[in-house]
Amino acid sequence: MSEANDKVPAGTPAGTPPAAASRPEAIKAIPVRHYGRWISAILVLAVLGLLVNAFANANVNYGAIPDFLFDSTVLKGLRNTVVITVVSMALGLGLGIVLAVMRLSKNPVTSSVAWGYIWFFRGTPVYVQLLIWFNLALIFPVINLGFYKDEMNQFMTPFMAALLGLGLNEAAYMSEIVRAGIQSVDEGQTEASHALGMTQGQNLRRVVLPQAMRVIVPPTGNEFINMLKTSSLAAQAAQYAELLRSTTDIGNTTGATVEMLFLAAVWYLVLTSVFSVGQYYLERRYARGTTRNLPPTPWQRIKQNLGTFRRPEVAR
């Protein structure tokens, strides 16, 4: 259409190698200048530079961070953070599925109870909930579950308080995620499984939940990463010796308060990054059957490209 296109025809100018004859000549045009992009890039870099400069000249002893990165107290806190996150999420997911099924049931009592649970645990700060669990001995000095009886102080350890506070709160959020997942599955699936003679339970376990997982996994990964960080509230509220608590303890004894907070931040970033990778593979697994061909994983892509020495295909 433009002049550039008119140059394409076979009658190429003399001196052009014959190979180029089959291929149209590249368009030579003066590109649009994006001055705005240049200006905004410079502005952003300038602000970034100022920030780096400020932190570089701040009164921070950066050398202390690597010194304590693999300190045994820090590693123990790190382990506790992972443990409390995993068990709280497990409790939240299990109870969340139960609550979601209750909420969707035709029984008005079970569905209202589930609604009330979600209303309460979502409506109060998790910090308050942690404090209540940790201080439960003040109102119930003795715990008596019929089969189990003990002093509440013996039962409500920091770990127990953190688990109940974080896990029961998480269940409220997870149940809404699970409910959304269950409702996202086409009703025809339930009809088909019922027509085959499957019971409600079989339908839920074999047909609905596996399909709901595709909708459930991404926000659950989000919740998991949230939980890694929210577990730091248990340091103060439940006196649980997790990552933040061990780093602040070191900070208090060595005087490197902010340095140790930076150290905690580094470890939290490492944890969330590792779990993000896990989430990617989990999502891939539950995508089975929804796409004709699963895209290769980054690792497979690297291997493939190493094998052929080809440039990677441009991502769609």
Partner: peptide, 8 residues
Amino acid sequence: RFNLFPHM
């Protein structure tokens, strides 16, 4: 609409 189980 067939209603096959898509994950199988």
